[in-house]
Amino acid sequence: MDWKVVAANYPLLLKGLLTSLQLTFVAIAFSLPLGCLIAIGRLSHRTWLSRACTAFVNVLRSNPLILILFWFYFLIPLITGQSVNDLTSIIIAFVVFFSVYFAEIVRSGIQSVGNRQIQAGLSTGLTYAQTMRFIVLPQAIRAMMPALITQCIVVFQGTTVVYVIGYSELLHTTSMIAERTVRPVEMYLAVAAIYFVVCYSASLLARRFEKGRA
C-alpha cells in the first residue's frame, strides 16, 4: 500500500468533505422546519390535514432516498420546463425526503411530553400557546435531541447517494481520484476513515445528550 496518494490528494478530499458537509447543513436547515410543520399537521385535530400529512410521511418513508433522487432529477426539469442544475434537484430531493424523518422525531418528541402536562399548564391559566412554549417544547426538545443528532448523521451519510448522479461530494471525488491514480484500496480506506471520524464524533455528542437527560 502507498499512502502518499492520499496525502497528495488531500486538498481535493478536503474540498469534497466540505461539499458533503454543506449539502448536509442545507438539507437539515430546510428539512427540519418543514418536518416541524408536518409533525404539527399530523397532530392537528383537523382530520383532513392530519390524514394528508400521514399519507405524505408514509409514502416517502417507504421509498429509498436514491429513488426519490431519481424522481426529482427527472421531474423538476419537466415541471419547470427548463433544465435546472444538479444541485437544485439534489437539495429539493433531500429536503423532501428527510423532512418526513424529522417530522416523525418531532412528533414523538411532542407526544412524549403527554397530555397531562398540557392540562397542568392550562389549569394555571396559561394559554395554549404559552403552554406549548414554556412547558411542552422545552421538554420535547430535550427528549428529541439524541434522535435529532442521530438523524443529522443519517443525512450526512445520505449525501453519499448523490454519487450516482456524479455530483462532486466526498465520495464521488474519492472515486475520481481512485480511478485516476488506480489506487482504490488506499483511497476508499481513507474516505471510510473520514466518514467514520465525522459520524462517530457526532454520535458521541448524541450520547452525551442522552446521558444528560437521565
Binding site: 451519510q157 453519499t160 465520495l171 484500496v185 474516505v191 471510510a192 466518514y195 467514520f196 459520524c199 454520535s203
Partner: peptide
C-alpha cells in the same frame, strides 16, 4: 456496531468490492 454504523453503506459496498478482495 460503532464501526459498521458510522460508515455510509455505499462506502462499505465500495470497500467490499474494491478493497476486501485485495
Amino acid at each position: 456496531v460503532e464501526l459498521f454504523r458510522n460508515i455510509p453503506l455505499i462506502v462499505q459496498l465500495f470497500l467490499w468490492l474494491y478493497v476486501a478482495p485485495q
